[in-house]
Design a protein around this nucleic acid. Structure first.
Length: 125
DNA sequence: AGATTGACTGCAT
DNA sequence: CATGCAGCCAATC
């Protein structure tokens, strides 16, 4: 049976991940792997970020975290959640590939943080 | 303490 | 291009 991981208490890496994701501006996205790298000192893996997103508080824009290459890996686990994410992203104006409506155009939509995770976003070229 | 699971990823087939 | 699988780390049992 698939066990459900308990929601984190809130004093671990989850909070750091949430703080980072909250900085992703509307219309932009980051990848699970990217977030893991940003919090590199904590030795996170993309999977852990996924778990963190699953239990993300309401104020965290979880939909702005996508899979590598702009795909939505959540599709395998939960097609419904994928549809919701898709709708939210489109509503924000996130660009998708013209020939693949299920794939985010990372070249245009990927967001990169400033030098510090807590610094305001810097201009993305 | 060992096995299992999970909003992942990259390489192999 | 589609599947499969091992590696990744923390939480659970």
């Amino acid at each position: 049976m698939a066990r459900v991981l308990e929601a984190p208490d809130g004093h671990d890496f989850y909070e750091v991940v949430y703080a980072f994701v909250r900085r992703v501006p509307p219309g932009k996205v980051v990848t699970y792997g990217q977030v893991a790298e940003m919090v590199e000192e904590m030795r996170l893996t993309a999977r852990q970020v996924g778990v963190a997103m699953r239990y993300a508080p309401p104020d965290v824009p979880w939909q702005r975290v996508v899979g590598a290459g702009g795909y939505l890996p959540i599709a395998k686990r939960s097609p419904e959640a994928m549809q919701r994410q898709l709708a939210l992203l489109r509503a924000e104006g996130v660009p998708f590939h013209p020939d693949d409506p299920y794939r985010v155009d990372m070249a245009k939509a990927q967001w990169f943080p400033g030098p510090s995770l807590f610094e305001p976003a810097e201009e993305t070229r």
